[in-house]
Design a protein around this nucleic acid. Structure first.
Lengths: 189, 189
DNA sequence: CCACAAAAAGAATGAAGGTTCTGCTTGCGG
DNA sequence: CCGCAAGCAGAACCTTCATTCTTTTTGTGG
């Protein structure tokens, strides 16, 4: 008895989902969340509409997946610095984060902000990841404070908060500027 | 001979355009740029579809008008402080600007950022207004520098630039947070 | 007052695109 | 090797608007 077999292993399934999500991110970055049709993603991913709907219930879920993918990738960059044993100072940290911004992903990121203003699911994702990133920034700054200013670990946390807040603001502003700079022209020799 | 007469005077026409644009801003703030149909604006403004199309060539133009309206209003608030003869310091200035943020308009503002990533017309409006606001911020800070630090006017401009840049970043971040905070619930006693 | 054209209303149109449906393909347990 | 269900492709469907067209209203110059 029992099922004859599920055809795609979980890992394969996740791979397909990722493949679709990545194609979606490229499309979104090029044409925007709403101006991207399923047909566009179909063309970009090489899969068919039916296949896409086998992996995502609807377009909204795809948008959420794309948003998550972009934000997670961004958080990962920050995580590397946070885990580093030689934490860079705030300005240096910001500079590195800015240098790591990918224009296409910045565009999708800003688009998700717009979407988050009305879509609760997206908003949750954005707010959640923003808080997570600010926490990592906070950890980073705290570590730096302890190293450079020889702060006691307990006092450093409090001092780090406004700095982390400001870093986040400046980083987000830079994301916005990057997204607005050269939105279409990118394939120049 | 000659035309019998144009029925609406220019002032009246401009009033209608504003009426429509304001209704559009309300709708956009509630449901987002793309999820707002002409029918929605029809209901909100009390006018008919035909009438709207008599004042705006298409929806894209309406979106542009809404974006302009929101940004101009924002710039006006800043302009008042810039024109003031007792310029507030950067932190005070920022606090006042933040206090003047209207949640609904913040939402539309953020939505236009998202749209600007792919729509050249909107991008132009957003970039243009952003630069204008930064310039006003710069003037504000310069005036304050001259007053408080007794800077020579020539040196003050250079010193003001990074401060204005940072203020802008923090202001925009605050706009984003406001837009993400309580996006739907607003009509509570 | 009248006539006339602008302006408004609202139904009609048509296209676009998300979702579903119908078979064909395929890889794996037996 | 065989068969079956999952994957997949792609056409079909159907809703949802943006936009246009037709008709009615309205305000003003003469």
């Amino acid at each position: 008895m029992g099922c004859v077999v599920p055809r795609l292993t979980d890992a394969r399934k996740e791979l397909r989902r990722a493949q679709i999500a990545e194609a979606a991110v490229r499309c979104f970055g090029r044409n925007g969340l709403e101006r991207t049709s399923i047909a566009d993603i179909t063309a970009e991913s090489g899969l068919s509409a039916g296949s896409i709907y086998a992996h995502y219930r609807n377009k909204a879920e795809l948008v959420q997946a794309a948003a998550r993918a972009v934000l997670i990738k961004r958080a990962k960059v920050l995580g590397d610095y946070a885990a580093s044993d030689t934490p860079p100072g705030p300005d240096e940290l910001l500079a590195r984060l800015i240098a790591a911004i990918d224009p296409a992903e910045a565009r999708v990121g800003v688009q998700t902000w717009g979407e988050a203003t009305t879509d609760p699911a997206i908003r949750h994702i954005v707010v959640d990841m923003t808080e997570r990133m600010r926490a990592m920034l906070h950890d980073c700054v705290t570590a730096w404070l302890v190293r450079v200013e020889n702060h006691r670990p307990d006092g450093a946390g409090e001092r780090a908060a406004p700095i982390a807040h400001q870093l986040m603001a400046r980083y987000q502003a830079e994301l916005l500027y990057t997204a607005l700079r050269s939105p279409t022209e990118e394939t120049a020799p």
